[in-house]
């Protein structure tokens, strides 16, 4: 639905652009292709890494790792798994809910969910392409520290 709206918007604007100025529109298409092809290798690599990683760290493995350990070890595991992997929300939230049922605490769940959202080691190649390695690493590091604090707060408030 969202994707559909995105296509309609993009095509409407492209049509507008074309009716106003053909040369500029050709320039638009050239730039669009160039910037897409520029980043494509990084995107493809990231997708391959995610595919392999999520096959090893599948749902069962994750719930075994995080579900049973509810102490500090569970926190650390949740942080590590959350930071490396990228799981789309529609998979991550139900997984987090089932982890709760399996015995994980709210602290771990918060850690898992927040690192999942904000820290992406796997996507670093793409991020670095636009921000430079240094800034990309810095953003992820700060986000990670924030997640520790957030997990502690959420864990405390949800008790």
């Amino acid at each position: 639905m969202y994707t559909y709206a995105l296509y309609v918007t993009a095509l409407v604007f492209l049509g507008l652009s074309f009716s106003k100025d053909r040369t500029k529109t050709r320039q638009v298409l050239r730039k669009t292709w160039k910037s897409f092809e520029n980043i494509l290798p990084q995107f493809l690599s990231v997708l391959m890494i995610i595919g392999i990683m999520l096959s090893v760290l599948n749902r069962e493995v994750i719930s075994q790792l995080i579900g049973q350990e509810s102490g500090l070890a569970g926190m650390a595991l949740a942080a590590v798994i959350g930071s490396i992997t990228l799981i789309p929300g529609f998979v991550a939230f139900p997984l987090a809910a089932s982890l709760l049922e399996a015995g994980a605490g709210y602290g771990q769940i918060a850690m898992f969910v927040t690192t999942l959202m904000m820290v992406g080691v796997v996507t670093l190649p793409v991020e670095s392409q636009f921000f430079g390695r240094k800034l990309a690493v810095k953003r992820n590091a700060m986000a990670f520290v924030f997640c520790l604090a957030a997990a502690w707060i959420i864990g405390g408030l949800m008790k």
Partner: peptide, 8 residues
């Protein structure tokens, strides 16, 4: 579509 919008 995202890249097209960015190009525009």
């Amino acid at each position: 579509p995202i890249f097209l919008l960015l190009g525009l």
